[in-house]
Design a protein around this nucleic acid. Sequence first.
DNA 1: GCGACAG
DNA 2: ATCTTGTCGC
Length: 282
Amino acid sequence: MAKEAEVRPPEETLSLWKREQAQLKALVVDGDTEAWQRDAAFSGLRRVGGVDVSFVKGDSVRACASLVVLSYPELEVVYEDCCMVSLTAPYVSGFLAFREVPFLVDAVRRLREKEPCLVPQVLFVDGNGVLHHRGFGVACHLGVLTDLPCVGVAKKLLQVDGLENDAQHKEKIRLLQAGGDSFPLALKSHDHSSKPLYVSVGHKISLEAAVRLTRGCCRFRIPEPVRQADIRSRDYIRRTLGAPGPPAPAQERSQKAQGPKVCPKGGSEEPEGEDRPPKAHS
DNA sequence: GCGACAG
DNA sequence: ATCTTGTCGC
């Protein structure tokens, strides 16, 4: 059952998707709309959100969509919502939103219904915003559908608009020194990572504010909101069906809405993978 | 045939 | 996206 998510959609579908992107693109607001965005210290900003979708190992359909909300500037998780979902659309470069965005919109809707006071003032999205083949990446898509300011953060450069990950580009990356250094598209999120982040406008925020805010949300290479969403969605998958042994019944194959949770406080912190905390040298 | 390919 | 635990260093 359900292997649709692996087959590339027919051109007809892609045409429909392109048309939808073109229509929604007209609604994107590329610029600051909130007072805090223009404030040097982001005063007035109290809650930043992050979303992510993690996948089940050998399965192209099952996944966990997560939405977390962190306090700002403390960056402590105050809300978490993980939900197992069944993906219907395959991943096609340039159409990531059609695969993931419906579940992210659902998560935002649950948050608005159950904890309206915790709705974030800006959402970090794992993927590009206007840095996209048709200027409408997943961060724009989610922004328009939820009307929330969104920032697109990609870990790899999507070569569009004549951008090339060539020697020139790599040289510019190499020239980024301290964490926080950036040029229009790439940001060195912290001192000890040679790989940059690619930040772009999603919705209702300027590139300058998006980059500055991303910088303000990075404890490690990946902005904390997206990093926490990623960590928690993967943990959720492990807890749900990661360990074999005693088969945990009670889990039906249908989609089951999980109870969004308000988090009292955080636990331990630790660096990981490419993310390196300050490393001392003599 | 070669390179590109967000997640 | 996923394949991955322990390990070296402060």
